[in-house]
Computed example of a mutant assay.
Amino acid sequence: MSHENVPSITPGALERLTYQKYGDSPTIKSYTKWKLFEENSPLRLPTEAKAGDVPIKGNVVLSGSGAEFNLPANVQLSEGTLGLSQPEESRILGFHFYALRKAYRLKITGDLAEPLVIVSHLSAKAFISHHISIEAENVKAPIIIYDMAEEGAKSLVVELKAKNSELEILTVGRHKGLSHYLLRASLGEGASVKAFTVISAGEMSHHREDYSLEGEGSELVLRGMPIAIGRAVDYLTNVLQYGEKTVSETRVHGFSYENGWTVHRGVAKVFESAKNSSSGVVSQITIMDEGSLGVSVPMLEVDTGEIESAFHSSAVRQFDEDAFFYLRSRGLDSDEAMSLFVHGIGEALSSHLERLRGKARGNVGELIEGLL
């Protein structure tokens, strides 16, 4: 299918693509249940759907095949992509672009006092693709992205280019069906991004964030909290540092419960050109009960000898029984104790946010309320 300003791919080209090129490696093996996406691909399901009842108001609301915009004055709207992702990269991106009808570009031209809220939503048995690109230069802006997959299979790709800007990004995944999410960001000179991602997994949630720190002095602080309760999430974070004096720090704490499946794979790579930079990735999964799965795979690679600091660590742990019994001794039942524990971790992870801290706290509470 071919659409104006959107990369296209034919069914024949799709057939030649694979989901992953190195599925047998112990560190980058396939943890996503790709068979489910194959069974619910755009070659089998409708690629159009009516807009559903969206529970959240936003400046951009993409629901089914519908799109509504209510943008502030200093955000400009156009169509097309930034070219940071292509259909030939993988079979899932091939599906994304095959089903994509329109891609939208947002250009932030001035500081935003209120968060720019973007909602991607599907509540129909279909394969629907949404694609949003964001450009920010010389601005300060908070951004909230709601990724909501109730039925069917939904693919959301967010492309971001930032330069001399300070951005806070809160990403909230609320999934029941199948979800594919890709955030791909290019950080130019003087760009600072503080990001927090919290995911309530669906039948299968594949969530990937790629950050390329290209400009001198660009910075990334990334925190993630994937939660799988009787469901599955494969959360990937990739940080590539090219510019001198760049700084990145990734910390992820995930939870598995009731036969849930939570995986975090985190890559941090400092290239030879990124002299005097610092980089770190910390990954931890807490398994809340027997029968649940947790996988933590952080990877750090440094190609330059002129490095300020570099660190990585991994942990997969059972739920802290001492903390659990302490909370129980204060009169809480087991579900309340677990909920309070998870909520506390979420607050700690989101403490780096300034403008969006209250929003993050509220969303963490909503995602775990009634789940445990």
Rank of each mutant, 00 (worst) to 15 (best):
Ser309Arg: 13
Glu88His: 14
Gly243His: 04
His206Ser: 14
Arg208Asn: 12
Gln241Glu: 09
Gly58Trp: 00
Glu114Pro: 00
Glu336Trp: 05
Val281Leu: 06
Leu236Arg: 13
Met225Asn: 08
Glu216Arg: 15
Gly260Asn: 11
His3Asp: 00
His352Phe: 12
Gly52Phe: 06
Ser218Asn: 05
Phe255Lys: 00
Lys29Tyr: 07
Arg16Asn: 12
Asp234Lys: 04
Gly260Leu: 07
Ser313Asn: 11
Ser296Phe: 01
Ala113Asp: 14
Asp335Gln: 10
Asp289Trp: 05
Val270Gly: 03
Gly66His: 01
Ser205Trp: 02
Lys275Cys: 03
Ser212Phe: 12
Ser279Ala: 13
Glu89Gly: 02
Phe97Ser: 02
Gly152Ser: 04
Val6Ile: 09
Lys161Val: 14
Asn59Asp: 14
Gly83Arg: 09
Ser329Gln: 04
Glu301Pro: 01
Leu62Thr: 00
Glu290Tyr: 12
Lys21Glu: 14
Leu222Phe: 15
Pro55Val: 02
Leu14Pro: 01
Ser339Val: 05
Ala201Asp: 02
Tyr31Trp: 14
Val267Gln: 15
Gly358Glu: 14
Ala228Gln: 03
Pro11Met: 08
Phe97Met: 00
Ile108Pro: 08
Tyr326Asn: 04
Lys57Ile: 12
Ser283Trp: 01
Ala67Gln: 06
Val75Leu: 08
Glu114Gly: 02
Gly215Arg: 05
Glu15Leu: 12
Glu272Ile: 09
Ser192Thr: 11
Ala136Glu: 06
Ser133Leu: 04
Val297Asp: 00
Pro72Gln: 02
Ala141Ser: 13
Val198Ala: 06
Glu68Asp: 08
Ser63Trp: 00
Leu82Met: 10
Ser133Tyr: 05
Met148Lys: 12
Ser186Glu: 14
Pro115Gly: 01
Gly110Val: 05
Ile108Tyr: 03
Leu332His: 05
Trp261Leu: 09
Leu45Ser: 06
Val281Asp: 01
Ser78Lys: 01
Tyr98Ile: 03
Ser192Pro: 01
Leu84Phe: 07
His130Thr: 04
Tyr22Thr: 09
Pro115Glu: 02
Lys57Gln: 11
Lys102Gly: 01
Ala162Phe: 10
Arg105Glu: 08
Gln318Asn: 15
Ile144Cys: 04
Ala315Gln: 04
Ala136Arg: 09
Thr47Trp: 12
Ile9Glu: 05
Ile28Lys: 12
Lys163Phe: 10
Glu354Gln: 15
Glu308Asp: 05
Gly52His: 08
Pro87Arg: 13
Gly177Thr: 05
Thr32Cys: 13
Tyr326Pro: 03
Thr32Tyr: 10
Phe341Gly: 09
Leu84Gln: 02
Thr286Gly: 06
Gly23Lys: 15
Asp147Pro: 00
Glu68Trp: 10
Pro226Thr: 07
Thr286Pro: 09
Pro226Lys: 10
Tyr257Phe: 10
Glu68His: 08
Gly230Pro: 04
Ala136Gly: 06
Ser192Ile: 13
Leu178Glu: 04
